[in-house]
């Protein structure tokens, strides 16, 4: 074991910047290492670890071997399907898409029809009452004995804005002499 004084600047830098990878870390990183998907810094760490660890290197060799076999064989699975099968599948897809379109257009047609019917019914229900002119009825006074007499309502149709409420005259109302509204 070398002392700190004997280490090169590079090795000291490695120790300070790179976290130490355990065998477990390295074995977990093997798939990404195998497929060259590790970042360069980690790739270097794994490579250095494998160079010095027989057990991890054995794991790596085994994984590499099985990966090589899978790369050669897995792409073959499901190949060789006749073109006719794809044509049949396409017909099925096209038929389902077309059926869906028909369904959607039928639904929208029915919805539009129903909405139109509702509008027509409302229009028919409103039409007879709308044809009768609205005539205001004269208000009547209530007497409590079943009789009612018309009440005369006087208003100016020409200038309603000028109408003001005036309190009735009260016999006992007399402002004090000299009193003003000023506070």
């Amino acid at each position: 074991m070398s002392t700190l004084g004997e280490m090169t600047a590079d090795s000291v830098e490695d120790m300070t910047t790179e976290p130490i990878m355990t065998c477990r870390d390295v074995q977990r990183a093997l798939p990404a290492y195998l497929h060259r998907e590790l970042p360069p810094s980690q790739r270097g760490q794994v490579a250095r670890h494998l160079a010095g660890c027989v057990r991890c290197d054995a794991h790596y060799q085994a994984q590499r071997e099985i990966a090589r076999r899978l790369e050669a064989t897995v792409p073959l699975i499901g190949r060789g399907t006749e073109a006719g099968r794809f044509e049949l599948m396409w017909r099925g897809i096209a038929a389902q898409i077309a059926a869906r379109r028909r369904q959607i257009s039928m639904t929208s047609l029915m919805t539009s029809g129903a909405a139109l019917m509702v509008v027509l019914l409302l229009a028919l229900a409103w039409a007879p009452t709308a044809s009768q002119a609205w005539v205001p009825t004269q208000p009547t006074a209530f007497h409590g004995d079943g009789r009612s007499t018309p009440v005369a309502v006087a208003y100016s149709s020409e200038d309603t804005s000028s109408a003001t409420l005036t309190p009735p005259l009260q016999s006992n109302y007399a402002p004090a002499v000299g009193a003003t509204d000023e506070p």
């Binding site: 093997l30 798939p31 099985i66 076999r69 899978l70 073959l76």
Partner: peptide, 26 residues
């Protein structure tokens, strides 16, 4: 990644008996 690693381990025993010459052919 760990699923691929576990699959490697599981498949090793099943695939290694396949002859090397057959693999080379593939």
């Amino acid at each position: 990644e760990s699923r691929v690693r576990l699959a490697h381990d599981a498949l090793r025993g099943l695939l290694l008996p396949v002859g090397e010459s057959l693999l080379e052919e593939l």
